[in-house]
Design a protein around this nucleic acid. Structure first.
Length: 470
RNA sequence: GGCGACGUAGCCAAGAGGUCUAAGGCGGGGGUCUGCAAAAUCCCUAUUCGUGGGUUCGAAUCCCACCGUCGCCUCCA
């Protein structure tokens, strides 16, 4: 039985979807005003893996991840470079896909963008006004927090306590300081849409309510995102959605902890960002995913180049072992689900069933790497094949790790010639070794190592690995 | 000030009442293998879990206090 921490109750709860065997989940996606950084990549990677695990567990998953393609930051950034907001957003959505591919993120079932949901947004706002949960004020529309008694329930805050710290922009026409904008009247020169209240654009929170309920229904199973979104974003989403439908909105709220860089949360406003793209280029996909999945998703995680380097080395060890197994012909063998395999699988499932404990799942892969190496050393093909199968075909795909085919594809077109050249060099060097001209042979090895090509003389012949493998 | 998370080996990180003299990774030391390396493998590297009390037959795990770090309360994944 899968159990997950539900922010709503603050407890680990058994996960029981609304509809048996099916899971409908919504993950808050990026606001597309720049390249995503590793802090943005954390929920993307974590919930990508979580979705894969749900599927591994036999659930039919419908996953939605949105793009916020209209907001102040986008408008300002677009103005700064002199293009309209849409062109700007389009560009960074395209860039997002590049990064998503680098990170090994599977596409969700739906990737809606805010500006494609204006009719739905306007409809919701209108119905909220009719029901008395929202009011129009000078072209703006606000949600009336006082009209929803459960307000504060998700983030565990009391209205009175929030009032003391509330800041109100004098330009706003709120009746109550905690009310929030559903619709913002257009300022001169801003992109805007027609509405019953005049031209304007949607507020931040309403888009997620509109897109999630349109695609997943008024009630769905999981709503996920970074824990910095709990308040106000998710609290507001929940309030407006439930005020509208009278039904529970998301039943489980999952929130990942923040990524810290130089002691602080990674954020553009702090200026301590590390682009996801750069991280993958420098350390490799597996290192980045391994780093992100090596700590429980709810905890804060500290980033440093050293930690990425550690992950890179660990990932590399796994890959080297897998390649070693492939060279030994282990990959072709078929594996039966014997008691040992089933026992390891149940340990994997036990870990991930416990609030998606990826660190333990990862540690299991390393245990298997050990077993695989030992089996290879002992020519125990049966055991090697079992371990290989579990790593590459069972556990790896759930965590989005160690996709060797992907590696091959990446290099196939550019490295055929390279491999041929390497073979010439290695043949020559082995010839020298046979003649016991070790000094020359070692010189070749040292020089190649300086170029990032590491040689290994094994009984099966000389092999090499490239630094660029990550 | 309110709400919340966290503090485990040199570093990263699981464990949440007895199977813990605490998983896994990185690093370090030693052995095997090797022409020498590399890779692999074996052994060692926390009698101890921020500090001080308490509960219990028994605590890293529960309770209290204290110290420290971070997050949210404003845009933020």
């Amino acid at each position: 039985m899968l159990r997950i921490t539900n922010t709503h109750t603050g407890k680990k709860e058994p996960f029981i979807p609304l509809e048996e065997g099916k899971v409908r989940m919504y993950v808050c996606g990026p606001t597309v005003y720049g390249l995503i950084h590793l802090g943005n990549a954390r929920p993307a990677v974590v919930f990508d893996a979580f979705r894969r695990y749900l599927e591994y567990r036999g659930f039919k998953v419908t996953m939605v991840q949105n793009f916020t393609d209209i907001d102040d930051k986008i408008i300002n950034a677009a103005n700064a470079v002199g293009v309209d907001y849409k062109r700007y957003a389009d560009r960074f959505i395209a860039e997002y896909w590049v990064d998503a591919h680098l990170l090994g993120l599977r596409a969700a079932n739906f990737h809606p963008r805010t500006t494609d949901y204006l009719p739905e947004i306007i409809d919701i706002i209108q119905r909220l006004i009719v029901k008395g949960h929202a009011y129009v004020a000078d072209g703006d529309v606000y949600f009336s927090v006082k009209s929803f008694p459960r307000y504060g329930e998700l983030s565990n805050r009391k209205i009175e306590e929030m009032l003391s710290g509330a800041r109100v922009d004098p330009s706003e026409n709120k009746r109550f300081p905690l009310d929030f904008a559903l619709w913002k009247a257009a300022k001169p020169g801003e992109p805007s849409w027609e509405s019953p209240w005049g031209n304007g654009r949607p507020g931040w929170h309403i888009e997620c309510s509109a897109m999630s309920m349109s695609l997943l229904g008024e009630s769905f199973d999981i709503h996920a995102g970074g824990n910095d979104l709990v308040f106000p974003h998710h609290e507001n989403e929940k309030a407006q959605s439930e005020a509208l439908t009278g039904k529970p909105f998301a039943r489980y709220w999952m929130h990942n902890g923040m990524l810290r860089f130089s002691g602080e949360k990674m954020a553009k406003s702090v200026g301590n960002i590390f682009n996801a793209r750069e991280a993958v280029m420098r350390f490799g996909r597996d290192a980045v995913r391994l780093f992100l999945l090596s700590k429980h998703y709810t905890s804060p995680i500290d980033l440093s180049e050293e930690f990425l380097q550690d992950s890179r080395k660990a990932a590399r060890r796994v890959r080297d072992t897998l390649k070693r197994a492939q060279n030994a012909g282990i990959a072709e063998k078929f594996v039966k689900a014997d008691p040992w395999v089933m026992e390891v699988e149940s340990r994997f499932e036990e870990a991930l069933d416990d609030d998606f404990n990826t660190p333990v799942a990862v540690s299991l892969i390393f245990e298997l790497v050990n077993i695989l190496n030992t089996a290879l050393d002992n020519n125990d093909e049966e055991r090697a094949a079992r371990a290989y199968d579990l790593i590459v075909r069972r556990f790896g795909p759930v965590l989005g790790l160690f996709d060797l085919q992907e590696e091959e594809r990446k290099r196939a077109d550019e490295e055929n010639l390279f491999d041929s050249v390497m073979n010439v060099i290695l043949d020559t060097r082995n010839h020298l070794r046979k003649q016991k001209q070790y000094e020359l042979a070692d010189q070749i090895r040292d020089k190649l190592e300086k170029l990032g090509i590491k040689l290994m003389d094994t009984p099966q012949g000389t092999q090499f690995t490239l630094d660029a493998d990550g």
